[in-house]
Nucleic acid binder design. Structure first.
Lengths: 204, 204, 204, 204
DNA sequence: CATGAATGAGAATTCATTCAT
DNA sequence: AATGAATGAATTCTCATTCAT
């Protein structure tokens, strides 16, 4: 195995170990020793890959969040042009996919909610950190463009939708209060639709 | 000065010192020694008032959050029966009052946003821990009642509004991104109005 | 109730509370606060009765040990002159009475074994701390005298018997190893008899 | 110097420092800082070798006790088959060797007596923690076997002898009361002989 | 006599980071 | 590049003791 692959594997192992421990014991009581042990590397080696625990955490959360968005786009097939759906329905489709996934992976939800700051979201999730693929942000704009409709402030729209969803879903999915996820969805989806509709600039 | 008053003053001093330090250095790097020093009491005395740093934090955040809500009710005069406003307008009034305050006290916003969990919110902010006054929760229901209108799930409504506001305001007020507070307000308020309206059960 | 009686009651309460806590949590992790709380007196009051935790412990263990010996004398009726038994049989009778009691009060056994030093034993158990009664030590000598037999070194005899019993009984009663108490007794008693017999100075 | 040797040396240094301090100031008032300082290592390093002060104490006392027994066997040459002695005389020889040593090392006697529980004795002193050598327990049984005699309960015999000796010697050696060691010996040895003899199962 | 709030010295323990191998 | 022993600063928390009421 070549050196770069080896390094990638070690990084991967550190990510996996850290996510496990963060989910189980919380970040505060997870030490670098714990992570290194679980990843079966020496403590000193940790520092060859990350500056410290929080550097790892930031990179991990960005990685996880990006993966969630990318997976949701792939799973729903939105923007692949096959089906002909309204922007509203496409957004709802994506949101629903994410919510269902979070329901099945509460640890992931907990971890992302607690650790994803808007700063990280912008830098690493929306912005492109590599040249390879379209970012989620690009896909979002492409989706709006294809619809042929015009929106006043697409960034604000995205922001509000993201905050509404993340705010509402945490408590509901993890605790089932004050309503269950299935009870929340109608109101949530309707609110999202209203937001989108109202952001549209009426064509003459 | 009598003993109970003395104890209250000490607790107050601890709260003040802690809020200052938490705001300045963050909770993690504020030690109990720091707090005790700033409050001019002995380290050991701290433990006569709080179990540990996190006990203090929870009680402090609940106290602060409750104060924000109570002040907003008082400042807007809502529910005092003077003006005749729609539920929507009353809610908007309260929300606006809170947003303006947060704009002026970014430390307070930061502290509450980072530390107020929904659990604490329910237990200590909404629930009554003393028999003296109406809680915010009581006031909220009384407001809905007085309007003569019926709503499907008032608790869900409250939940969604709170989450929307707190989600959206943090980034906007503290960083001015992706829009300024004044740019956010129209959309935010309209969304809130829509939410309330849609929760109403149509009278025959 | 008069003042002296009140003080005695408080001391009694402290003894009881302390013995309970020492037995349950160990001396090291029992604080003076704990004792005062359990005895329902204020912490400061503790110091009106004892110098510190170890002063209390020493007085408590002496009290308990003396009580064990006195009770054993009373329960067996030895030295009351009624029955005509050999010294050996009288000693065995007393030892057996103590062993049975310890079997029923393991906390007492644990507490005495761990805390009764030979120094305390001599000063407070053998020596008379008040003029009222015959001490155990006096009774012991009186018992030997009445038998009409002569012994080389009665103090050494007492010492060796006490050490043998206390050494052997702790493990056996509390853990049942390496033998049970009933299995131990024949050998133990026989050894004691041998010791006594061999200490006798042969009459011409 | 290789790593394992270095580690062994550090452990040795910790043992030595701890024994010194425990003997001088008592365990309770010896802090881990004290031990680390005396051993010339950093405080944190202590925890790489022992869980806490009591872990060190237990291992230290087991080590010391085992050494005493092993040395006594070596010094007396018992079980090496040279001289032809009765079991009784062999035991007396060993006991005498131990008593004399304790007389010369009162700190060792104090430390062992205060800290060696029967549990530790069984687990760490009698049981084998490594495969290298015969344990004291094995040697004891081998000694009985070689004699060609049969004993009812060798374990009980060992237990009673150990308890008798340790109980009697502490006070006598350290304080000279109620008799001196030399005055104690005849009675002590005779009692041991009686115990052994009485444990023998008579041959037909 | 009794109280219990306040004190602050002191001990244990953790853990990020370094660095010689 | 990888290791893991060593470090020691930093922090938490306890609790015996005092003293003003």
């Amino acid at each position: 195995m070549n050196l770069d692959v080896k390094k990638k594997k070690k990084k991967e192992a550190l990510f996996t170990a850290a996510f496990d421990l963060f989910s189980t014991k919380g970040i505060k009581s997870t030490s670098i020793s714990d992570i290194a042990n679980k990843a079966k590397i020496a403590k000193g080696t940790f520092y060859l890959y990350f500056k410290d625990k929080f550097d790892l955490r930031d990179k991990l959360v960005a990685e996880k969040a990006k993966r969630v968005l990318v997976d949701a786009l792939e799973d729903t097939g939105v923007n692949k042009g096959n089906k002909k759906l309204s922007v509203e329905d496409e957004v709802i489709l994506i949101v629903d996919s994410i919510l269902e996934r979070m329901k099945n992976e509460p640890n992931l939800l907990r971890f992302i909610t607690k650790n994803l700051s808007w700063g990280i979201f912008q830098t690493m999730v929306l912005g492109s950190d590599d040249g390879e693929n379209m970012t989620f942000y690009d896909e979002y704009h492409s989706m709006l463009d294809k619809s042929g409709r015009k929106f006043r402030n697409p960034d604000l729209l995205l922001y509000m939708v993201v905050e509404l969803i993340s705010g509402c879903s945490y408590q509901v999915i993890l605790q089932g209060t004050p309503v269950t996820l299935d009870e929340l969805k109608p109101d949530l989806f309707q609110t999202i639709k209203d937001m989108i509709a109202r952001q549209e600039i009426a064509e003459k």
